[in-house]
């Protein structure tokens, strides 16, 4: 069972991935294209110095595993060309010397390789690669922002550039997703309440319905925040998914309650009992079935599915508890004043 939960063992790819990160290098990177402003400008000593300064600043940032740039190659070439004297592990000071080192390097590359994955064909820009440890999207975006600030403050204007990489892309996607989820969820909730008010033909009942719709979500996220503390793309998707299922329970309970109250003329307590008798078992069973279904997802090797499974299970359970324990008492508490008004449709 323990092995089942340990994805490193279950999946060769994951195990290899973790090994690489622990012993070799990282998989997340941020790449920059640093422009020298003129053709052949990568040989300019001032440009190389700036790139080197940027690299040194970057290396000091938390979460950065490694920074690779052309300047490291240049320093090494300089050292090699001076009999491997350590004192020469520094950037060449003359522009033509840098250009000639590049030529030497280009002439020595084996088949299929050229410098074009590090320098553009015009020799006016070089590629700057920062490899990161497994960091959160928040961390990555913040780091990128700081880097851009450094470039704006310390480097000539033509060198300013955005970081680019799958990590940056996904970080932005996740952020955008979460932001729009929040708006979407709120809108959905409002709409559902409005529709319930219209369908139940009661302002009070419609408003009351928002409570058992919202409360399970709050409780689920609260529990998650307490136990896990991190929200990602998967978790943000749970709210709308679970909302649909939660609303079901509420609608069934309230529509039966309304029928009992309005059509059959029963009292509040009798109507609540009526609801329990008619839809109670069904609510319980469907929730149980759904919980079993979503629990299966928690066996997945894919973390997003596990999280989705867990969260939805918890929210369905909370929804059932809210509808069975909270909603009836809420109705009874709020119904007293309107009992007299509502006895005639």
């Amino acid at each position: 069972m323990k092995n089942l939960m340990n994805t490193s063992i279950r999946y060769q790819f994951r195990g290899d991935n973790d090994y690489v990160i622990e012993h070799l290098t990282g998989f997340e990177s941020i790449e920059y294209s640093l422009n020298a402003g003129e053709s052949g400008g990568v040989s300019n000593p001032a440009y190389l110095k700036k790139v080197d300064e940027f690299a040194q600043w970057y290396r000091k940032q938390p979460g950065v595993m490694y920074v690779g740039t052309l300047t490291d190659t240049m320093k090494r070439l300089n050292k090699n060309m001076h009999g491997d004297d350590e004192a020469y592990y520094r950037l060449p000071e003359e522009r033509d010397l840098s250009a000639q080192y590049l030529l030497l390097y280009e002439l020595s590359l084996p088949f299929g390789l050229d410098l074009n994955n590090q320098i553009n064909i015009d020799k006016s820009s070089t590629r700057f690669t920062a490899i990161l440890e497994s960091v959160s999207t928040q961390h990555a975006l913040a780091l990128e922002k700081r880097a851009q600030k450094w470039l704006r403050e310390n480097a000539p204007p033509e060198m300013a550039s955005h970081g680019a990489s799958p990590l940056i892309m996904f970080s932005h996607i996740a952020k955008r997703n979460i932001d729009s989820m929040m708006i979407g969820n709120t809108l959905a909730l409002l709409l559902i309440s409005v529709i319930l008010i219209a369908v139940l033909r009661s302002f009070k009942l419609g408003l009351i319905s928002t409570v058992p719709n919202l409360v399970p979500m709050f409780m689920t996220f609260g529990l998650w925040g307490w136990v896990v503390g991190e929200i990602g793309l998967a978790v943000s998707v749970v709210a709308p998914v679970a909302l649909g299922i939660i609303v079901d329970d509420t609608v069934h309970f309230l529509s039966k309650f309304r029928r009992a109250r309005v059509e059959l003329g029963k009292t509040t307590e009798e109507s609540i009992r009526y609801s329990f008798h008619t839809v109670g078992p069904a609510l319980f069973l469907t929730s149980l079935i759904l919980v079993c279904g979503f629990l299966v997802m928690t066996f997945s090797g894919f973390r997003m599915n596990v999280q989705l499974g867990f969260m939805t299970t918890i929210s369905i359970i909370f929804a059932l508890l809210a509808d069975f324990l909270f909603l009836p008492t809420l109705i009874m508490k709020l119904s007293k004043p309107i009992t007299e008004n509502k006895s005639h449709p």
């Binding site: 060309m81 000639q100 080192y101 002439l107 084996p110 390789l113 050229d114 064909i121």
Partner: peptide
């Protein structure tokens, strides 16, 4: 390399490598 005034032998196991990019 005139900037260094030095002659450097190049490894020629790279015959398959590209000439000057």
């Amino acid at each position: 390399l005139p900037a260094l005034k030095r002659v450097k032998r190049i490894s020629s196991a790279n015959k398959s490598g590209s000439f000057m990019g």
